[in-house]
Nucleic acid binder design. Structure first.
Lengths: 125, 125
DNA sequence: CTGAGACCTGACATCCGTGTGAGGGGCAAG
DNA sequence: CTTGCCCCTCACACGGATGTCAGGTCTCAG
């Protein structure tokens, strides 16, 4: 599979895929002429990378963790384990924050909607 | 209260406070000489701003929402209401993502810890 | 073989929140 | 008045992920 296909199948841009490789998160087989080729597993890998990015992990962190994700069951150096738990804790904190903020927004939305039931249309679109 | 005090009480940097003002998220009374002065309420406001930032909202969005947060119960233009709900949905999605990722990490951590119980010390610190 | 389209590298551009430094003014205590 | 500290504005820098452009090469269908 070439980079364009991988991009299409993962929803990542070609640029991003190259960036992932540059940062050591994603490997590729290079053809004689230097073109990147990927196996099926690359799809999952990229999706995982995207997932990690989506929860606010940084490229460096992901690059550090990913090798140990793939061959799971293998030994994980203590430093990596620490980072792993650090990220998990960060995620927990983030979850709490999200929950709190969700409540704030929700209250606000409810108030507004109630107010709107009283005097519906308004020209301030 | 002057900007330094506010910074200290909220944990935001002076720089950030000025930035918040510049982006229309935070107002200040200016003394004749141009120095910023804040009331007690500014503390809550800044904390709220920080909270919003912490869940990934962008400055523009926050600036758009905040005015309606303060005088809650007031009319909220439909556009703002839409943004409000959009943000809430985004937060919900983000929460799911976090939960999924948390599981991934957790599984990884558990596997590693179990592996470590088998053959403890390792020199790859 | 040829041409279209996908790919390569390298570099510069963007956005966003923040840091930082320069150069200057305000204000209160001694 | 002076000293020391806080404040002001302006402006440039950064980091991270991505976009985009330029100039060149590869691949495959026709």
């Amino acid at each position: 599979m070439r980079i364009g296909d991988l991009a299409q199948r993962t929803g990542a841009s070609v640029r991003s895929l190259r960036y992932y490789e540059e940062q050591g998160m994603l490997a590729s087989q290079r053809s004689a002429s230097g073109q990147r080729h990927y196996g099926e597993d690359a799809v999952c890998r990229v999706l995982l990378i995207k997932q990690f990015f989506a929860v606010g992990m940084t490229g460096k962190v992901i690059a550090a963790l990913l090798p140990h994700v793939k061959d799971s069951g293998e030994r994980c150096p203590p430093a990596v384990l620490r980072q792993l738990t650090a990220e998990r804790d960060r995620i927990d904190a983030q979850s709490d924050e999200l929950a709190r903020t969700r409540q704030t927004l929700d209250a606000l939305i409810r108030t507004t909607e109630e107010a709107m039931r009283g005097a519906p249309p308004m020209n301030t679109t």
